[in-house]
Each structure stands twice: as C-alpha cells, then as structure tokens.
Write a protein that binds this DNA or RNA. Sequence first.
DNA 1: CCAGATTTCTTTAGGTTTCAAGTAATTGGC
DNA 2: GCCAATTACTTGAAACCTAAAGAAATCTGG
Lengths: 164, 164
Amino acid sequence: MTLDSETKAVELPEHHGDELRLWLRLLTCTTLIEGEVRSRLRERFDVTLPRFDLMAQLDKVPEGMTLSDVSKRMMVSNGNVTGLVERLVESGHLDRRTSEADRRVQVIRLTKAGRAEFRKMAAEHELWIADMFGDLTPKDVRELMRLLAKTKASAQRSAKARAG
Amino acid sequence: MTLDSETKAVELPEHHGDELRLWLRLLTCTTLIEGEVRSRLRERFDVTLPRFDLMAQLDKVPEGMTLSDVSKRMMVSNGNVTGLVERLVESGHLDRRTSEADRRVQVIRLTKAGRAEFRKMAAEHELWIADMFGDLTPKDVRELMRLLAKTKASAQRSAKARAG
DNA sequence: CCAGATTTCTTTAGGTTTCAAGTAATTGGC
DNA sequence: GCCAATTACTTGAAACCTAAAGAAATCTGG
C-alpha cells in the first residue's frame, strides 16, 4: 500500500469527523452546565430549570408576554408552555389573563411574589454561571461569543434551507 | 458624576453579565442544533434522539456495555436508561443479557439489524452536522474545539468543588 | 464466615417534552 | 356579510427524564 492511497483514503470522501466531534463537545459542555444548574436550583430553591427559565423570560418584560412569545423564546412547543404556565399560576408565581383585544391570547406576567423569588434565584444563578466559566479569560469569553454567534447563524441557515 | 465613579460602578460589583450571556448563547446553539437533529431523525427515520444517542454509544463498543456505562457516558440517570433500553430491546435494536461474572450487571449490545439501521442513520446524521457547522472555517472549528475543552474543564472544576 | 457497606439495576412519583389533533377567535378575500 | 384560512391555545398519548427509594448481588473488614 502506497502513501498516496492512504492519504487519498482519508481526504477524498469529504471527511466530516471534525464537525461531529465539535458538536459532541458542544453538547457535552451544555449538558454538563445545564445539569449542574438543575441540581443547584433544586437543592437551593426547590425549583425546576424549566420553571426558572420561564420566569427568566418574564422578568425581562414587566408588561407580560403571550404564551406564543414564551414558546418561541424558549424554543419549546406550545403545549409544553401551557402546562408549565398552569403549574406556575397554581403556585402563585404567575398571573394570567385573557387579552381584551384578542380573546385567543393569554397574557402572563410574574406576580410580585414571583418576581421577588425569581430575583433571589437569578442573583445566585449568575454567580454559579460565572464560576463555571471562571477559568476562561475575558479574551476567551469574547472569542467564544463570536464563534458561537457564527455557529448559530450557520445552523439557522442550514435549518432554513431544509424547511424552505 | 465623575468618570471615576462611573468606571468604578461598572467594575467594582463583580459584574458577571458576560458569562451569563455566553451561557445563554451556548444554550441557544445547542438547542437549535439539537432540535434540528431531532426533527430530521424523526422525519427521515422515525427515531427519537435519545434512541439514536444510545445506539451511537453502543456502536463504538461491539462487545457491549453495562447500563451504568451507558448512563455515565450519556450523562443521564440510571432509571432513564432502564426504560430506553427496554424499548430498544422490544423493537429488536438491542440485545440484552445478564453478566455471568456479576449477576447485577446487564450487558447490552446492538443486534445485527440494530447496527445496520444505526449505520445508515449515522451516515446522514454526520452530513447534517457538517452542514449545520458549514459556515465555520477549519480554523474556527479548531478554535471552538479548544475553547469548549477549556469550558468543559472549568465547569467540571466548579461542579467538583460543589460536590467536594 | 458474615454483617454492613457498596454497587447495579429497577421501580415509583412527579414533571417535562414532543407531536398531532382539536377548539375557539380572528383575519382576509370576495 | 360570510366563508375559508390562519392564529392562539389546549388536550391527549407516548416518550423522556430526574430524584429517591428499594431489591438483589457483590465486596470488605473483621
């Protein structure tokens, strides 16, 4: 077997192993951090991650959002949001009312108590995240931000091409 | 207000917003790609992502793995693996037997049919991933690999410190 | 050997998640 | 005005997932 044939064997058939390894590494990082956040939220505040995420979306918009807005922002299905909101209204964290202008629409907001509780959790959450990324230099952080933005755009282009 | 006090206001209270934004961006990328892979797997092969992931683990080890191994590698709970394996044995993709040496241990392997089906799916999957990361240059890929490795190590350090 | 600790896996309860189908309200074309 | 299409949300079925408790087998230090 010549060196040529070996080299060809590796390079010719469009070897995409690097991207696959990159994807697995990205997934590992996310799973690792997400699992840690999930554990700490349960341990410290007895709250689930999806509930925290939903409250985080609402905290940014005091006037409230529709269920569809939440669904899009969280990138989860509509049916999922329905159940999540139901439980958070039940527990008093969320306030929900039907829109006057369009009675299909449900507007949800954090209650006073819900907002207070979220702010407490968010403050600690931010420290956890800072600690988990703590070994990265400011330059690393900037560079990672840039590359992930590029990755997001690339994935969106690919997703659109399929759907399109 | 002097320039000094403004500068201090930003720098003193250990503002960790950058890391939080980085985390959200990381999560967005992963969710986006994962959702796309999930859709395509369902559409093309009528298979769920968790099943694909489990088969991917087993494909790497022809002699099979224990449930605990799978659980660790996939970073999911034991109980979760029990159910997943049950359904994949049911559908004929997996073979399962109790270890002779240690009767607590269940060893699972891909069946011939399961392996054949997985290989078909994996080949397309690799192309999807390559396309989704397609706008990144080889240098981008290398740099992202490096930064994610650093991120993983940092998160593990933080997780360990808590559990410690 | 043997009692206690550990390991491996299963079970249970409670949530989360998707997809698909269904209901209700609104919009747009005619 | 009226009907079809669209939009917003809910419901139902099945799968996925975790945490915690439990069962069975193995290991360990007397």
